[in-house]
Design a protein around this nucleic acid. Structure first.
Lengths: 348, 348
DNA sequence: CTGTTAGCGCTTTCAA
DNA sequence: TTGAAAGCGCTAACAG
C-alpha cells in the first residue's frame, strides 16, 4: 500500500457538492440528511468506488469493529471449531476478526496480544490454554491490564489462573475423570496415557482428571504410564510408538485429544495392534471427523463451537463491573466403537 | 473500547521529557537519536505500558502491516491448510493477518473484500475458488480494481477467470483426470461422482477432469452418475445416500474432496457397503488426516500449505508491473487402500 | 438539516 | 541530532 491515490470522503463530498460532514452523515446514517443530498452522496461514493478508511474511522473515535482471536494452530480442528464459533458471533455483530496463530509459543502468544492491542481491537479472545509458568502469566497479565484499562474486553477459553478475565471453562477435568471411570467400568485395569505438553493447563487438567477417575477406582498411574508428545497428530503417533517400544501392557490408551488419538491409532495399527480388539483408545474433544473413523472414536465431547460463541459473547457484553465471570460448560463421554471390554490376553 | 485513557506517544514523550518527534524516532529507530534520550524514551514507554496505536500509524502513512485472507470455512481442513501456509509467510514478514470466513456465500465474499479494503490491508489473498457467475465476477473485479489502484496486492488460490490477479493454480483438472485414469486402469468401469456445488470453479475443474479422464478411456459419464451436495462432510454423506437410494451400481465413487469422501464413506458403511471391498472411494486434497483412516484414502494430493505460502509470497513481492502471474502447482495421485480392483459382483 | 472546525495519535518534512 | 508543525481521513461537537 505504498503508492496510489486513495479516494477519500473529501473526494466524495466534493463530487456530490456537499460538505464533508454531510457526506459522512449520509454514508453512516447517523443523522437525518435531506434525501436528495443523500442520494447524491451515495451515487458519488459508488461512482468513485469509495471505501472508508477504517483506520481514520477508528482514530476519529468511531466504535471499533475489530476483535482479535489468538489460537495455537488453525489446522487443529479443536481450534478451528472454537474459532468458527467466535466468527459466527462476531459476524452476527458486524465485527471483523483478526486471527493470530502462535503455534503454542508462549512468547508469540504475548506478541500477538500486543499486536491486537495496537490494532485497538475491541475484544480479544484467547483460545489457547495458559502455560503453567509464573513469569509467563505475569507477562500476560501485564499486557492485558493496560488493554483492559483502555476499555478492551478479554475473554479466555479454558483456565487461566490469575487472569481476572471472563472465562469459558469446559469441564476438562470432570470429563477426563468420567472417561477414566467409564473405561474402568468397562473392565480395563491397565492404562497408558498419551498426552500433550504438560505445561498447558488444558492438558494438565485432563491428566488430573484421568488420575482422579482411576485413583477413585483403585488404579494408580505411575510416571511410566505416561507418554507425552506435541499436541498434534504426529505427537500422538510418536507417543504411541514410545508406548509400543516400552512394551507397555495397557489394554486401554487414554489420550488428551482426538488429534493425538488419531496418530496413536495409526501407530498402533502399524505395529500390528488392532483397535479396539487388541487395545481400546479414547480421544478428547469430539472433533467433527472422529465419528467417521472406523471404528468411530470413543471420546469426551466438548461443544467446540459453543465454546467460541460463548467466549465472544462474554467479551462483547462485558460490563466493566462484572469482570471475571466464568461460564462452565460440561463435557460428555461418548462411548463409540474404539473401546471395548478387554479380552483375556491372546497368545502370540 | 469506549472509555479509558490510552497511553499515547505524547504521554511517553512528556514522561521522558523529549519531543514527540524524538520519542517516535527512538521507538522506531528510523533516525539516530542520542543514546541517553533513547534510553529515557524506551524506559518511559515500558513504564507506561505504551502500545502504539496501529490506526494512527497507518493513517500517518507508516507502512501497512496487515494482510487479509478470505476463505469459505475455517473448519474445512482444506482451507485450514492453505491458511496455515499464508500465516507462516505473513508471520515471517512480520505481518498480521485478518481472516474472514464467508461460508461460500458470494455476497459475503464481496463484503469481506470490502472490509479488508477498508482496513487498508496491504494484500488480500482469496482462497476460495471463484463462483461461476458473470455478474459476481464483475462485482468482484469492481471491488478489487480500485483496491489495486490504491497499491493493494491481490493473490488468489485457484482459478479466477478474468480477475487479472496473481494466481496460484493447483492442477485440479489434471489431477482429476489422472485419478479417473488410474481408477479405470485398476479395472473400474462403472463410476459415480460425489460432487460439491457446481458453481465453484474448483469443483467444476475437478469434474471436468474426471470426465476427460474417463472419456479418454471410453467411459462416458451421464447426468445420472452425479450426486451433488454441499462441500462439506454432510454434503458428502447426503450425496452418497442419494447414490445408494438410486441404487447406482458404481464400483468406484469419485469425490471432489476428502471431506466429502469422509461423509460418503460413512454413508456407504451405514448402508452395509464396505470400502473398498464393495466399492472403491477416492478423495481429493490429501488433507492431513486421511492417511489415518482405515482404510487410508486414495486421493489427489495438493500441497495445501504451499498453496497458501506461494499465494502470500506472490502478493508480497508483487510489482505493479508484473500483474497476473500464475504459479501452477501439480497434483499427485496417491493410491492408498480405499481403492482396489473391482471384484465380480457378489450375489445378495 | 447542513456546514465549520477541532481533534484522534502518529510520522515526517522542514528548520534550527 | 532535535523540535515544531503539517497533515493522514474521518467523526462529532458546535454553530448556523
Amino acid at each position: 500500500m505504498s503508492d496510489g491515490p486513495h479516494v477519500t470522503l473529501e473526494d466524495v463530498a466534493r463530487s456530490a457538492e456537499v460538505s464533508l460532514a454531510t457526506a459522512s452523515r449520509a454514508l453512516n446514517g447517523t443523522t437525518r440528511v435531506r434525501d436528495d443530498l443523500r442520494e447524491r452522496v451515495l451515487a458519488a461514493a459508488a461512482r468513485l468506488a469509495y471505501t472508508p478508511n477504517a483506520h481514520a474511522q477508528a482514530l476519529a473515535g468511531a466504535s471499533r469493529r475489530t476483535v482479535g482471536v489468538v489460537c495455537h494452530d488453525i489446522s487443529d480442528p479443536y481450534f478451528a471449531g472454537i474459532i468458527r464459533g467466535v466468527m459466527r458471533v462476531a459476524d452476527r455483530n458486524g465485527l471483523v476478526v483478526m486471527l493470530a496463530a502462535t503455534f503454542a509459543d508462549p512468547d508469540k502468544e504475548l506478541a500477538c496480544v500486543s499486536a491486537l492491542r495496537a490494532q485497538r481491537a475491541s475484544a480479544i479472545v484467547l483460545t489457547g490454554s495458559a502455560f503453567e509458568d509464573r513469569s509467563w502469566e505475569r507477562a500476560m497479565a501485564a499486557e492485558l491490564e493496560p488493554y483492559r484499562r483502555g476499555g478492551g474486553r478479554v475473554a479466555v477459553v479454558t483456565r487461566h489462573r490469575s487472569l481476572r478475565a471472563d472465562t469459558v471453562a469446559p469441564d476438562n477435568r470432570g470429563g477426563a475423570r468420567a472417561m477414566a471411570e467409564a473405561m474402568h467400568r468397562l473392565g480395563h485395569r491397565r492404562f497408558a496415557v498419551v498426552t500433550g505438553p504438560g505445561d498447558l493447563t488444558t492438558v494438565a487438567d485432563r491428566v488430573t482428571g484421568f488420575r482422579e477417575g482411576l485413583a477413585g477406582a483403585g488404579v494408580e498411574l505411575s510416571e511410566r504410564d505416561f507418554f507425552a508428545g506435541s499436541s498434534d497428530r504426529d505427537g500422538g503417533y510418536a507417543a504411541a510408538n514410545a508406548l509400543i517400544e516400552a512394551k507397555h501392557r495397557a489394554t486401554c490408551v487414554l489420550t488428551t485429544s482426538d488429534v493425538m488419538a488419531l496418530g496413536a491409532i495409526t501407530a498402533l495399527r502399524e505395529a500390528g495392534r488392532t483397535v479396539p480388539d487388541d487395545v481400546s483408545v479414547t480421544g478428547f474433544d469430539d472433533i467433527p471427523l472422529v465419528r467417521d473413523l472406523a471404528p468411530p472414536l470413543t471420546t469426551v465431547a466438548l461443544p467446540l463451537e459453543r465454546l467460541g460463541e460463548e467466549a465472544m459473547q462474554l467479551a462483547l457484553d462485558g460490563t466493566t463491573s462484572a469482570r471475571g465471570r466464568t461460564r462452565r460448560l460440561s463435557a460428555e463421554v461418548l462411548l463409540r466403537d474404539s473401546t471395548v471390554k478387554p479380552r483375556r490376553r491372546r497368545r502370540r
